[in-house]
Design a protein around this nucleic acid. Structure first.
Lengths: 100, 100
DNA sequence: AAAACATATTGACAAAAATAAATATGTTGG
DNA sequence: CCAACATATTTATTTTTGTCAATATGTTTT
């Protein structure tokens, strides 16, 4: 491993209460930003800020449909995060398997 | 899920470059704080600060031996983190298996 | 085209976190 | 017991992050 900053960026997605709340809601399935907003006690710019961090980390996908934006959890981004986490704490992580 | 703050605390361990560097060194095996310090470009109080965060998150164990403190990655703490991460991004995570 | 709406961006501020110097605590060796 | 050492804590400073108000951008509807 050389550059830890990119990996740190991934885990920023999980280090904030509000973002965990958002992820928990998205786990049920894709949701419009407006739906997320009305279920949380934060302003619209703050939600937008958190969604940017979640998207930049690769954990969340955004899909634009008209004036709405639908967010969902990225399966591939999630896998990258899980793989990194295992790689960070387990010596020979190539022996590890995750099966669904 | 009710209280996201405790979960956020766990992932604080992974959201900082220096802490990822430390974890990467500990993955090889237990190391004295003095060894970690000499391999990093940070002051002793800063290392102490990071080690406290890593220990508080449950990811790292500390073992005192005389005037030295030996740190190592906690297998159980790591498992908690991995399980949480999967739970956060996968809908029916009970179907997931991690095998070593 | 204008109004209403959904989201993003900018700017300003407050809270939290990282950092290091100074100091404290506890341990070992002389 | 004292000096040297390893680590922790306190204090102060700087940097980063979360937040909202104001504004901008782009979309739909009338």
């Amino acid at each position: 491993m050389q550059d830890y900053s990119e990996v740190a960026q991934i885990f920023k997605a999980f280090d904030d209460e509000k973002r965990l709340h958002i992820l928990d809601m998205l786990k049920d399935g894709e949701k419009c930003a407006c739906v997320l907003l009305e279920k949380m006690q934060i302003s619209q710019p703050t939600l937008s800020h958190h969604m940017k961090i979640l998207c930049d980390s690769g954990i969340v996908n955004a899909r634009k449909e008209g004036k709405w934006i639908y967010y969902s959890i990225s399966a591939s981004g999630s896998k990258v995060a899980i793989d990194w986490l295992i790689n960070l704490v387990v010596k020979n992580s190539t022996n590890y398997n995750i099966s669904a």
